[in-house]
Measured scan of single mutants.
Amino acid sequence: MGFKLLSKLLVYLTASIMAIASPLAFSVDSSGEYPTVSEIPVGEVRLYQIADGVWSHIATQSFDGAVYPSNGLIVRDGDELLLIDTAWGAKNTAALLAEIEKQIGLPVTRAVSTHFHDDRVGGVDVLRAAGVATYASPSTRRLAEVEGNEIPTHSLEGLSSSGDAVRFGPVELFYPGAAHSTDNLIVYVPSASVLYGGCAIYELSRTSAGNVADADLAEWPTSIERIQQHYPEAQFVIPGHGLPGGLDLLKHTTNVVKAHTNRSVVE
C-alpha cells in the first residue's frame, strides 16, 4: 500500500471513529477524501466538511520552486461564519470567499490569524475590503508590521502568557507558548472536538522541520505538551499544512522538532 493511500485511509478511519463516538456532533463529509496538494491548482481553494458547521479550507501556493498546501478553518456561528487564517495570499483568499459563498452561503463576518507569517495573514486586506472584521493577538499584529505583512485590524486580548485561553464565538483560542513562531495560536472547536494546530503542528508525513527561522526550538516541545494537557479530548487535529489526523500529530511534531534540534547540535 502506497504512503499517500495509507495517509488518506488514516484520515478516513479517524473521521469514521469520530462519527461513531459522537453521532450528534459529527456529520463528516462523505463526498470524498481530504484534498491534497496535487489536486488543488494554485489560485483555487477546496472546502472539506469535518463536522456539522465545521470545515477546513485548503489552498496551495508556490514557494521556492515548489507547491505547498495550506489549511485553515471555518466555523459556523449562528447565521454567520468565523474564518481562521487566510488562504495564503490575496488571490487565494478572494477564491476562498467565493467558494464559501458557493458552498455554504453564509457571510464571513470575523477572521482570526493564528500567527504573523504570510500563509496566515496574506489576504487580510481582501477580507477587510469584503467587510470582514480581522483579528490577531497584539504580538501577531506587531510582528506582521515588522515583517511588512498585512496586519489584522483588531487585537485579541488575554493571550499574552503561555497557557492563556479565551473564548471567541464558537471557538476557544489558546496560546501554548512559542513553537513554530513566538505568537502562534491554537484554535479548538469544543462542539466538535476539532483542534486546529496551525503551523505549530505537523502532518504525519512530514519528517523535516522546514521553516524554523522564527521558531523557538527549545520551547516548542513544552508548548505541545500544554496543548495535549489542555485538549486531551480532541479527536480531529488539523495541521497548518497537509493531512489531518488525531492527537498523534502532536507527538510526531515533537519528535521531528527534537530530531532537528539534535542534528543542529551535532553539526
Rank of each mutant, 00 (worst) to 15 (best):
T134L: 03
R167L: 07
T86G: 03
L173Y: 02
T134E: 01
D119P: 01
D85E: 07
T114E: 00
L13I: 14
E219I: 15
R226H: 07
A234G: 08
A192Y: 06
S113C: 11
A178W: 09
G72Q: 00
K8F: 04
G78K: 12
V37P: 07
P221N: 09
A51Q: 06
T207F: 13
A213D: 13
D52A: 09
L185K: 01
A179S: 05
H260Q: 08
A133R: 13
S223R: 02
T109N: 15
T207H: 15
L250C: 04
T60G: 10
A129M: 15
G2V: 08
V54Y: 01
N92W: 04
H180C: 00
L81M: 08
V54C: 06
I238P: 03
G43L: 04
L217F: 15
L13M: 15
L143M: 12
E101H: 15
N262I: 06
L24C: 10
S193G: 09
E44R: 12
V256A: 07
I58N: 05
L6E: 06
R128T: 09
L10Y: 09
K91P: 11
P23A: 09
A178D: 06
P23Y: 08
T114I: 00
I186A: 06
I201S: 03
E145V: 10
R110P: 04
A259L: 07
G105W: 06
D214V: 08
L249P: 00
T86R: 01
G78P: 04
D125E: 12
V187W: 00
T222G: 12
A179L: 02
L24K: 06
V212N: 10
H230L: 11
K91I: 09
T109K: 14
E44D: 14
I84H: 00
N184C: 01
A136E: 03
Y48E: 10
G163P: 04
S31A: 12
E147T: 12
T114G: 01
F26S: 12
V237A: 04
N92H: 07
V42T: 13
R128W: 07
T182F: 13
A15G: 08
C199G: 02
V194E: 00
T93E: 00
F116T: 03
T254E: 07
G72H: 00
F116N: 04
N255G: 12
I186C: 01
A66F: 12
S162R: 13
G131S: 09
G131Q: 10
S191F: 08
S56F: 12
G169H: 04
A144R: 14
S193M: 06
D77A: 08
H115N: 03
E39A: 10
S31V: 13
S191C: 03
D125V: 09
V266M: 07
T60R: 11
I40E: 12
G105Y: 15
V212P: 14
S208M: 09
C199P: 01
S205H: 15
S56T: 12
E145K: 14
S137T: 06
A218T: 13
V189D: 03
I100M: 14
I58W: 10
D64E: 07
E157M: 15
L195M: 11
Y48K: 12
L96P: 02
E157P: 15
E233Q: 13
P107E: 13
G131M: 11
S223L: 02
Y135F: 08
W220F: 15
S38Q: 12
S30Y: 15
V121M: 09
Q228A: 15
H180D: 01
D183F: 01
A25D: 05
V187H: 00
A165K: 13
T207K: 08
T86V: 05
H230K: 15
A21M: 10
Y48V: 09
Q49M: 11
D125N: 15
G123L: 04
D64N: 07
A19E: 13
A21C: 15
D85Y: 00
A59R: 04
A66N: 11
G242Y: 01
D29N: 07
D29A: 08
L83Q: 04
L106I: 14
G2P: 09
S27T: 07
R46I: 13
R46D: 15
P23L: 09
P244V: 07
K258R: 12
I17N: 04
D164M: 11
S181T: 11
R141Q: 08
S113T: 14
A192S: 06
D64T: 15
A218Y: 10
T36Q: 07
V67Q: 09
P244G: 06
S38K: 10
Y68Q: 13
D29P: 07
T134H: 04
D216R: 12
Y68A: 12
C199M: 00
E44V: 10
L6D: 08
E157H: 15
L82I: 11
L217N: 15
Y188I: 05
G72E: 01
L106C: 06
L5C: 11
L10M: 07
S113E: 04
I40A: 10
V37G: 06
S56H: 07
S16K: 07
E101Q: 15
K4F: 06
Y188S: 04
P35W: 08
D214Q: 15
S137F: 03
G177V: 01
I40K: 13
V166D: 04
T36G: 08
E233W: 12
V146E: 11
P138H: 07
A51R: 09
P239W: 00
N255C: 05
K4Q: 15
I104T: 05
L173K: 01
N262Y: 06
A21Y: 12
L204G: 11
A95L: 11
K251P: 07
G240H: 04
P152R: 01
V45S: 10
A259N: 05
V67Y: 07
I238M: 12
G163K: 12
A59V: 11
A218V: 11
T153G: 12
F168H: 03
S22I: 13
E39G: 08
L9F: 10
G169Q: 03
L24F: 08
R120K: 07
S30F: 10
D79P: 10
L5E: 07
E39M: 11
R110W: 10
A178F: 09
E219Q: 10
Q49C: 13
D183T: 00
F236A: 07
Q229L: 10
A21R: 11
G53E: 12
L247W: 08
V132A: 09
P152N: 02
R128V: 07
S56A: 11
A19T: 12
D29H: 05
D79W: 15
H115R: 01
V171D: 02
E203C: 05
V257L: 06
A94Y: 09
Y231M: 04
E157S: 13
Y196P: 01
D29K: 10
V166E: 08
V112I: 06
A213I: 08
F26A: 07
G148S: 11
R167K: 06
L24N: 08
V108F: 02
S160T: 13
D183M: 00
G105H: 15
E267G: 11
V132W: 03
R226C: 03
K8Q: 07
Q49N: 09
T93I: 02
G89S: 13
Q61L: 08
L127S: 00
I201N: 03
L127H: 02
G2C: 05
A200D: 02
S22W: 09
E233I: 12
G158C: 04
S162K: 13
I186L: 08
